[in-house]
Write a protein that binds this DNA or RNA. Structure first.
Length: 188
DNA sequence: GACGGGATCCGG
DNA sequence: CGGATCCCGTCG
């Protein structure tokens, strides 16, 4: 079932664990690709690691947008990172998707590639699903070709909570969550 | 106008 | 552990 805006109208640290086990759906050229979210991180205005911590700028403006929209940015000149905006309009707050696992590789990928590593990491999953800054600010819904679906009814995986990765500030906040038994998690 | 750092990834 | 590589925020 499609995750609607109301799902995202909560603090990022409440939404982030609830997104584990949900599915990202990407539609390209009429084909749908799906990936189960296995690792997330939360960021918000109270947190010095958050891009919107200081002020709203051209680069980060979409993290201040409506809950249920996308915040996509370029990092290290090479990779994109995909976030889902949470909480409320004009408050900067989002969940970074750090890893997904998919069964069917997109057609643009080498079929001999190991599918279970293809979405292991925030930059890699954006490559896998062709997520770039063209999608920055969009509403996550089928008519934009990128959306989220809720967990299956029998979801029962164990969720772990720990500190975030790759940041220099706010390193002690336990705002990373992952599914324990999944292969694509960055570090456990 | 220039400078430099970044929520990453890969190879050695 | 270093390099790739681009955008843009910050400072002068």
């Amino acid at each position: 079932m499609l995750l609607e805006q109301s799902f995202f109208e909560r603090p990022a640290d409440a939404v982030a664990p609830d997104l584990l086990g949900c599915t990202i759906v990407r539609r390209i050229d009429g084909e749908e690709y799906r990936g189960v979210i296995v690792e997330t991180e939360a960021y918000d205005a109270t947190d010095p690691a958050c891009h919107g911590y200081r002020r709203k700028t051209q680069r980060n403006q979409s993290i201040f947008g409506e809950p249920g929209t996308a915040y996509v940015y370029l990092i290290y000149g090479t990779y994109h990172c995909f976030n889902i905006v949470t909480d409320r309009q004009d408050f900067c707050s989002a969940v970074l998707i750090r890893a997904i696992e998919c069964e069917k590789l997109p057609i643009w990928r080498n079929p001999t590639e190991k599918a279970h590593r293809a979405g292991a990491g925030p930059g890699k999953l954006c490559q896998l699903f062709k997520i770039d800054r063209q999608l920055d600010g969009i509403t996550l819904a089928p008519n934009f070709g990128l959306w989220l679906e809720s967990r299956s009814a029998n979801f029962a995986e164990e969720i772990y909570q720990t500190t975030r990765i790759g940041i220099t500030q706010g390193v002690d906040l336990p705002w990373r969550w992952y599914l324990r038994d999944r292969k694509s998690v960055s570090r456990k």
